[in-house]
Amino acid sequence: MNSPLLELKGLCSTVFSEDTDQQIPILKGVDLTINKGEIHVLMGVNGSGKSSLAHVLMGHPNHQITDGEARFDGTSIQDMEPDERARAGMFLAFQYPHAIGGLPVGTFLKAAVEARRSEEVPFRVFKRELDAALEKLGISKEFLGRSLNEGFSGGEKKRNEILQMHLLKPTLAMLDETDSGLDVDALKKVFHDVREYANQDNALLVITHYDRVLDYINPTHVHIMSDGRIVKSGGADLSKRIDEEGFEAVLGVEASV
């Protein structure tokens, strides 16, 4: 039997706080299994550990796995560098993508695509793929000449993240609050493009604070996170309950069981 795409067992982590110079516990035993072809939505209030989970999985330098297991494609990621994880097929659309002055988007995209594939990609080949992606996502070519994320609007940053996802073709794409800061039209557009990406050979982990995302994406699984743990999992119907009753009510029911 094939191993799951992502398998987390009792995952615990700490984050290093530069303010206090201390390791602060964040994840306190996360269990999660994601298979190809699935779309998972991870919800929870601020500070519940959703974004931390994404960064722990991507290998943020300040986040450390302290206990439990994290396997991607059957391999433990604990000792893998962020770039190794990315080359293995993991991707994280950042909530706050970093700006790099003087680095043109086009140059960055080519470098990233070549890194992901661990080979040089001839310019013509790259251009063909890029043009196709730009057209599909409705992004103008002028975008390529701009410095990466510098002076980008919130919507441009998010669309750039999604463009990267389309070009890098990760098997596990994690989206960290990609919906935040977007107006309704932009939200619709971005999540249309996210949906376009999903297929039977990949999986999505969509992290969001608001359930409005669920109007644009049809999850196979919905999880609720609280205080560093996934405290409730279900199907799309779970999100409907949250929608109707609110986080607290749903979690309150769970907590009393």
């Binding site: 991507m58 290998g59 943020h60 330098p61 300040n62 560098e81 962020p82 770039d83 994880r85 990315a86 080359r87 991707f91 994280l92 950042f94 993508p97 970093h98 790099i100 960055f108 470098a111 990233a112 890194a115 992901r116 990267q164 890098l168």
Partner: peptide
């Protein structure tokens, strides 16, 4: 470090 991490998360070596 955050900037480098962002680029590395795209597969680019440190």
């Amino acid at each position: 470090d955050e900037t480098i991490y962002y680029l590395r998360s795209r597969g680019i070596k440190e």
